[in-house]
């Protein structure tokens, strides 16, 4: 018995080195599965409002080596700040945008790449607005419980300065680990699992 309920959450186990078979089978070489479309590969599925952006980056281990077997998922609001989810009670999200993406890191370079939209602003629990952000979840061999973090945007300095979560974190050096740099097509971020400039991970 927990304080809050009757059952306890099932324990996590590592996704292991072969997570691609189950989650991105075409990438793993099982090319016929699921009509040849890996789940989450396309986030913008039709005409959608907002700015198209590419979010790319790498996940780095404690020695600075790119993690080439990671699976990265993102979840974000549409350009109006609405989530494509039954638990979104403020209105209907843009039907041309799923809000959910899944990509493997490249098996050679470790680079991941999402084609998505710049998210709008979403309220915090208290009602004030958060800075635009993307929720990130990372699994791989050697990661015992999926790692949650967020991506904020370097060209949203004003909104970032008043974001409730970033304010709670406080330390500018730690906050900086969650802020993606502007690139020609969108944004780029390096997610460091360990060591100097270790990314802030969240107990969501």
């Amino acid at each position: 018995m927990t304080e809050t309920g009757k059952l306890k959450e099932s324990a996590s186990q590592t996704a292991g080195p072969y997570v691609h078979i189950g989650c991105v089978p075409s990438f793993a070489g099982l090319t016929g599965m699921y009509g040849g479309r890996d789940p989450g590969a396309e986030m913008v599925t039709a005409e959608a409002r907002g700015a198209r952006i590419v979010v790319e980056g790498r996940v780095l281990d404690g020695e600075g080596a790119p993690v080439r077997d990671a699976l990265i998922e993102i979840w974000q609001a549409d350009a109006q700040g609405l989530y494509h989810s039954p638990a979104e009670t403020r209105g209907a999200a843009d039907p041309g945008f799923t809000g959910w993406g899944r990509q493997p890191s490249d098996a050679k370079t470790g680079q991941f790449r999402f084609e998505t939209l710049k998210p709008g602003q979403v309220p915090w629990a208290g009602g004030q607005m958060q800075a635009p952000h993307i929720s990130v979840w990372i699994v791989a061999r050697g990661i015992n419980l999926g790692l949650s973090t967020r991506i904020y945007f370097s060209d949203e300095a004003e909104a970032n300065a008043t974001d409730p979560l970033l304010q709670q974190i406080g330390d500018p050096a730690r906050v900086a680990t969650m802020i993606a740099d502007k690139t020609a097509q969108g944004y780029s971020i390096e997610i460091r699992l360990q060591g100097e400039n270790e990314t802030v991970f969240l107990d969501v």
Binding site: G62, Y83, L165, Q194, D203
Partner: peptide, 19 residues
């Protein structure tokens, strides 16, 4: 495999938002 992939800092807790 966990040795070089385990963050050293504790996860930061915060109140759930819509995200």
């Amino acid at each position: 495999s966990s040795v070089l992939r385990a963050p050293a800092h504790a996860r930061i807790s915060f109140e759930n938002s819509l995200s």
